[in-house]
């Protein structure tokens, strides 16, 4: 789900950047550091605006200036039970992997309807029922997140397509 959220970020600025351009550097650094990053629970999609750049404090002992920046950003946070769309990145014998933005979701065999069978045609593995549903690398899939777990910088999720209206999207 997408949210607009106020976030804070602490930036250290090297003394060589002290000067009139300092705030520009700070902004630059902020965008570089945070946009597109993954906190483990959410992805920062885009920074909308910067609310406030605090007065800098010199860190004793190092000479760096410390800025606290608060900003508004669009974040995406997946929840358990949420239905999302993603693209299949690879298919293996015990399931398939789906990329949903920066989230890597694995849909295991147990979460795939019985009628979709693992087959290897030529060299491309896929789950297919032989009629109209085929999950192979590159196909769009709608799935429900059954479990989600974050580590620093990355998120993993378990998905399921074993429900009505889930599975490969017809294009």
């Amino acid at each position: 789900m997408f949210f607009v959220k106020v976030l804070e970020h602490r930036i250290h600025l090297h003394p060589s950047f002290f000067g009139a351009q300092a705030s520009a550097y700070i902004l630059d650094q902020l965008y570089r550091d945070r946009e597109g990053s993954n906190t483990g629970t959410m992805m920062i999609v885009a920074i909308i605006d910067v609310d406030d750049i605090s007065e800098p404090k010199i860190v004793p002992g190092s000479g760096y200036a410390e800025y606290d920046v608060s900003f508004r950003a669009i974040v995406w946070r997946p929840f358990r039970g949420e239905v999302v769309d993603g693209m299949v990145s690879s298919v293996v014998n015990n399931g398939f992997f789906v990329d949903v933005g920066g989230l890597s979701v694995f849909v295991s065999k147990a979460m795939i309807p019985q009628q979709l069978k693992y087959t290897v045609e030529g060299a491309t593995p896929s789950f297919t029922d032989g009629v109209d549903q085929t999950v192979e690398r590159g196909s769009q899939v709608r799935l429900r997140i059954k479990g989600i777990r974050g580590e620093m910088g990355q998120m993993f999720a378990i998905g399921s397509i074993r429900e009505d209206y889930l599975g490969p999207l017809l294009q």
């Binding site: 015990n94 890597s104 295991s108 147990a110 479990g147 989600i148 777990r149 990355q154 378990i158």
Partner: peptide, 16 residues
């Protein structure tokens, strides 16, 4: 039996 990123791929529970 199948775990992905510290979760069970079959039931979605956190294995840690």
């Amino acid at each position: 039996e199948v775990q992905f990123g510290g979760m069970c791929a079959d039931c979605g529970r956190d294995m840690n």
